[in-house]
Nucleic acid binder design. Structure first.
Lengths: 207, 207
DNA sequence: AATTGTTTTAATAGACTTATTAAACACATT
DNA sequence: AATGTGTTTAATAAGTCTATTAAAACAATT
C-alpha cells in the first residue's frame, strides 16, 4: 500500500461502480453488488464514499462536466473555414461519443431520476455554448450572405449534428445485438456513419 | 363493478404502473409505489399480475410489438413516388415517436436490463423490415439509375431518418428543462424539426 | 514493544422490497 | 338464508437494501 504501481481499493471501487452504474443504472446497482465485484467488504464502500449517491456523484460529476465542455470546445477551430469548422465539430462530437458511448443514456436517465441535475446542467449548458454559438453564428451569416450556405440557423445545424451522432450510440445496442453484427461489423458501420453524418450535414447546408 | 363506464382497479393499476415505469424505470419503481398511487392495497397488484415482471410485460410487450410494427408499416406507401415514400416514412416515424415519446428510452433501458429482450426484438426486427426494405430497395435502384438519387443504400437512409427523429425525443428533456423552453416552445421546436428532418433527408439524397 | 493511523471486515439496525396467505367484503345467484 | 365468485385488505415471510459501528488487521513510526 502506498506503492504507486498498485491501485488502491478506493480506486478499484470507483472503477467497479462506474462500470455497474453504466450497465445497470443507479437504481439497478446496489452497494452490495459493487463491493462484491470489487472484491471487498460492503462497509468499505461506505467508509470511502459514505453514501451511494456520493459515490455516484464522485464518478459522474466530472465526467458530465468534461463531456459537455468538450462538446462546445472552440479551441480547435481557429484557422479553419466555416465548412471545415462544421466538419470538425461533427467528427469531434462523434469521437467524444465513441470514447463515452454510454454517456447519452446516462444523461437522459439522470435527468429523469434527479430533477436537480437539470439545474446543474442548466448552469453548465448556458455558458459553454455561448462562445461557440457566438463564433459560429457570425461566420454563418457571412456564408449565407456570400451564397455559400443556405439560410439556416446554427441551432438547427447543431441539433442535426448532435442528433445524427447521438442516435447512433443509442441505436448501437439495437444494431449490434438485435441484428447480430459482430463487433468489427458494428465498428465498421460506426466509422462509415461518422463520415456519412458529415456528408449529410454538408449537403444540408448547400444553398 | 361490471359497469362499463367505470374503470376497474385492474385497469387503474395498469395505467399507474405504465406511468411510473416510464418515469422511473423498472428498477426505480416498486409494487408498493404502484399500489399507493393507484389507491389500492399492494397485495392486489400481485393478485392481478402475480409478479412485478409480469406486470411490466403485460404493459410493454404489446406496446413494443405495435411500435415496431408501425415503424416498418408499408401499407400506406402505395401510389407514392419514391421521394414521397421517403417523406411519408420520416413524418410517420416522427408522429409515432410523438405519440410514444418515452419509447426509445424504454427500449434502450430494456435491452441492457434484460438481455433476453434482445432475442424477442431480433425475432421481431428480422421479419418486419424485410418487406419494407425489399420494396424500397428496388425503387431506390431505379431512382439511382435514373439519376434522381445519388448512389446510396436504403439502410443508410433509414439510419439517418431514425437518427434524426429518435434523437429529438432523447434531447427533448435536455432542451425543455435545461434550456428553459416552455411546453409550447418545445413543441414548436419539434414541429419545426419534423419538417427540417424531411428536408435534411431530401437534400442528402440529391445526386 | 508500543503507538498511531489507515484499511478492512463482521455484525447489526432499520427500512424497504417482492410475494404469499388467510380473511373480510361486496355482489350475484339460487 | 345460503352459497359461490370476484375484489380487496391486513398480516406476514424472506430477502435485500443502505448505512453505521465496533473491532480486527496491517503498516509505518517512534
Amino acid at each position: 500500500m502506498g506503492n504507486k504501481d498498485e491501485i488502491s481499493m478506493e480506486q478499484v471501487i470507483l472503477a467497479t461502480a462506474e462500470k455497474l452504474f453504466l450497465e445497470k443504472g443507479f437504481d439497478g446497482t446496489s452497494t452490495t453488488q459493487i463491493a462484491k465485484e470489487a472484491g471487498c467488504n460492503q462497509a468499505l464502500v461506505h467508509y470511502y464514499f459514505r453514501t451511494k449517491e456520493n459515490l455516484f456523484n464522485s464518478i459522474f460529476e466530472t465526467k458530465f462536466r468534461t463531456f459537455f465542455q468538450n462538446i462546445f470546445d472552440t479551441t480547435q477551430l481557429t484557422n479553419l473555414s466555416f465548412l471545415e469548422k462544421i466538419k470538425h465539430i461533427s467528427r469531434t462530437h462523434f469521437d467524444l461519443l465513441l470514447a463515452n458511448p454510454q454517456m447519452p443514456k446516462l444523461v437522459i436517465n439522470e435527468l429523469s431520476r434527479r430533477k436537480e441535475n437539470i439545474n446543474i446542467l442548466r448552469d453548465r449548458l448556458h455558458v459553454l455554448p455561448e462562445q461557440l454559438f457566438s463564433l459560429m453564428d457570425n461566420e454563418l451569416q457571412e456564408e449565407i450572405s456570400a451564397g455559400r450556405v443556405k439560410n439556416i440557423t446554427f441551432i438547427d445545424i447543431m441539433i442535426s449534428i448532435v442528433s445524427l451522432n447521438v442516435a447512433l450510440f443509442f441505436l448501437k445496442p439495437v444494431v449490434s445485438d438485435v441484428l447480430l453484427l459482430t463487433d468489427e461489423q458494428a465498428n465498421q458501420m460506426l466509422q462509415h456513419r461518422k463520415e456519412e453524418n458529415v456528408n449529410i450535414i454538408l449537403s444540408y447546408l448547400k444553398p
